[in-house]
Design a protein around this nucleic acid. Structure first.
Lengths: 209, 209
DNA sequence: GTATGATTAAATCGAACGTATGAAAGAAGG
DNA sequence: CCTTCTTTCATACGTTCGATTTAATCATAC
């Protein structure tokens, strides 16, 4: 509140609107209006709408990547052979934690991540930096050691499954607020449900060929 | 091929473009151009761009719903207590089958489904008809009988997990063609991997509260 | 005080969008 | 041949978009 920094106000407004309406559904005019800034501010501070969105994506993805990396480091420092459950929690946990931090219960950020991962706009390609792939590869190696017998392809499929479950989780809650799903408890409950669900899934024996 | 029916040509073109670029990323002009029709054809045959997209969504979702329903009927007719694996296959199978039928290997249709489920355009709300919910409720009841001890909320979460894994599956393959993922085998392999993955996940014991 | 570099304000550009309109073309029946 | 209904066509409208330009404002250091 101290500094009504136009640049971060633009980032906040863009994050909000992008998460809700996607890249193409959000106009520069709507962003600047919500940010209380001038229309030209986006061009001045970021160069273009696409670069603004890339900055938004970086800002939300990087702490998650860092937390995933740190979690794996801490886990491997303790034991060279962690359990599947621990690996799943280290990987999926930050997706819930960082989602819940900073904004209204995390539902906005989770929606933003889904948007980033699935936005059909060609500008969205490349929003996930190389850090994303690095983290994925590190977890792939860790899971491969704990789950021998799994082909690299099937393992890659399963890790993508983790992402799918955690990311898509609250998506449908948003677009059709099913009556049985209350928001306050749902955050922590969903996290535990997801760990249970995904640990069992990852621990499944290899598909016999 | 006999009838270059303008109406279905529009549906085909729209399905193609919507799947690739989303609702807002697809212009009526692009659709009519690909369909070899006039710009006004969309307005004449469907009324508006939104109604065209709704028709596309219906055309792709309805056979999947029907197959899911039929699969459950056949399964319950055989035995009142099917296995988790059978239920998973009956539910997720059509998502792979119908995806692979009709177009180039199914990757386009699967992408379209992801678009329908996750498109941030407000016009997309309501594309999934009531049939979708009916099927979901029926499988919910069937799973509840096979998996006692699971709260309805957690069960609902898990069923959403099935959808997430099957739908998001090929999404990332599209936007970042990872080198290890070859397309010809991937279709059938992904189906079997998903069944393995999801059967184990659904069979997990309830999360202790 | 004023020169300077950074930021914001207002106005506007060309392009693309969804939609509407009215004329032209075709098919079917009398 | 003429009428009637359906379908296609070319075109234009009004709006909104992202981007740009030019002028005004501000802080700060000389």
């Amino acid at each position: 509140m101290a500094t009504p920094d136009t640049r971060t106000q633009l980032l906040d407004a863009a994050e909000h609107l992008f998460a809700e309406h996607g890249y193409r559904g959000t106009s520069v005019r709507a962003i600047t209006k919500l940010a209380g800034a001038n229309l030209a501010a986006v061009g001045y501070h970021f160069g273009s709408k696409a670069e603004l969105m890339a900055a938004v994506a970086r800002r939300v993805i990087e702490p998650i990547n860092a937390a995933q990396c740190a979690g794996l480091d801490k886990l491997l420092a303790r034991t060279p052979d962690p359990s599947v459950s621990e690996l799943v929690e280290a990987f999926a946990g930050p997706l819930f934690d960082e989602m819940s931090a900073g904004d209204e219960g995390g539902s906005r950020t989770s929606r933003l991540i889904v948007t980033i991962l699935s936005d059909p706009a060609e500008e969205a390609r490349g929003w996930t930096g190389p850090g994303e792939d690095t983290v994925r590869e590190r977890y792939l190696a860790a899971f491969a050691r704990v789950l021998p017998g799994l082909s690299p392809e099937e393992l890659r499929f399963r890790i993508r499954g983790i992402l799918a479950v955690t990311a898509v989780d609250r998506l449908e809650v948003h677009q059709q607020p099913s009556p049985g799903c209350t928001s306050p408890v749902a955050g922590e409950a969903a996290r535990r449900w997801a760990i249970t669900f995904l640990t069992a899934a990852m621990s499944a024996p290899p598909t016999r060929t």
